[in-house]
Nucleic acid binder design. Structure first.
Lengths: 222, 222
DNA sequence: CTGGATCCTCAACGATACTG
DNA sequence: CAGTATCGTTGAGGATCCAG
């Protein structure tokens, strides 16, 4: 019930008491993409025991990191969202994501992608990539069953779940899109090998590949 | 033995499989300050079971994050150090430290500081603070039993365990130094209230306070 | 003395069933 | 839909012991 403490007056120790709990980082990742209902969290976190999710949500609420909105009026579902304090975890989640992604080559057996994981990954990929202010492009991205869209506008890149109508480019890929983001697979080769399929202007695909970047770890160079 | 996996092809999930293990973040913090022997890690992580430490070190070694140097020749102790891949975790550890420190007010009952926690905290505090290139100042800092020194030189600030001879300023404080780093306690008040004692030029203490900064969380403003 | 390994206990986690 | 309840399994905590 009560979180385990490390007994040290140290920022990292305090953070570890929270994000060191099993499943907590992934719950926070899903909520960082947007508010979620309990059942959506269950669906987006395959394998999580429902009692563990309930416990974590309660702990995060007690810590002031997650806010729970009980159903009222037209809303008839409980909704969980990050508080301001929870949003402040963003840079830490991004840094961890980048580090973990640096060690990712092929998916391990049975590993899946979820809407939230792709959305979060695309957001991280835009972290340090500012695009020209005059780009105004929307992308639909499909990775397996997952559908996400991406908007470049006013010099920013924003990723969100779901598709948009009439995107400028449709991108369909598998996990091999990882190599594209790492820069080890050129946009041309991605199309030539069939690792990625597009429907639209190939020049827009190059924009996509150039604006998004999550390199492999330099220390793990093959 | 084998780490628990989340079954998601996601950077954050991969990171969580490692740093989500109990004690791992604190082990990495201590090693990020410098190479450590097994017994030094035990001493710096009060409460860690020795079998847990041994298991974690083995896991981290298997992951390529920590390297173990067996005793040889004059060296007669096993030494653990971060690998290049382990060093790459630095930004993530810093971001987590900052977030956790933002929520830290008073120490909880029985919470202690360790040499590594103070050293890491001072390093994080200098993260975005570049000091003028012509400053050349050394500080000895004592917080409780813990002794650390800090060197400002060539526009950088470096913190390390232990004391130096003939520092420009000696600083002695308790946990109240946290308020100084947060900016809620002015250097003058810190001295006036006795929260911090110095031996040396008060102007150098102002330099110290101004160069180091770990704010409280804005969303937790009282 | 350092660097662990072993043993036992207990709290946390995991899987599934069930309920307001 | 949003959780509890129950129960089995795993990992952490704590003490002790052992080998180089």
């Amino acid at each position: 019930m009560t979180n385990q403490h490390y007994g040290q007056f140290c920022g990292l120790a305090r953070a570890a008491e929270i994000v060191g709990q099993r499943w907590t980082l992934l719950i926070l990742r899903d909520l960082s993409v947007g508010p979620r209902r309990y059942s959506e969290l269950v669906a987006g976190l395959p394998g999580i025991p429902t009692n563990t999710l309930a416990t974590r949500l309660k702990e995060l609420e007690d810590e002031g990191i997650v806010a729970r909105t009980a159903p009222s009026g037209t809303e008839r579902s409980v909704v969980y969202r990050l508080t301001a304090r929870g949003e402040e975890l963003g840079p830490a989640l991004d840094a961890l994501s980048r580090w973990g992604a640096g060690g990712m080559r092929e998916p391990r057996d049975g590993e899946i992608v979820t809407t939230s994981s792709i959305t979060a990954a695309l957001r991280v990929a835009t972290g340090d990539g500012i695009v020209p202010a005059d780009w105004d492009t929307t992308y639909n991205v499909r990775v397996g069953e997952v559908e996400v869209h991406l908007v470049m506008r006013d010099g920013t890149v924003v990723a969100d779940p779901g598709l948009v109508e009439d995107p400028d480019l449709e991108i369909t890929a598998g996990p091999g899109i990882r190599d594209l983001l790492a820069g080890t697979l050129s946009p041309q080769d991605a199309l030539a090998t069939g690792a990625v399929q597009i429907d639209g202007d190939p020049a827009l695909f190059e924009r996509f590949a150039n604006a998004l970047h999550v390199p492999y770890s330099p220390s793990l160079a093959i």
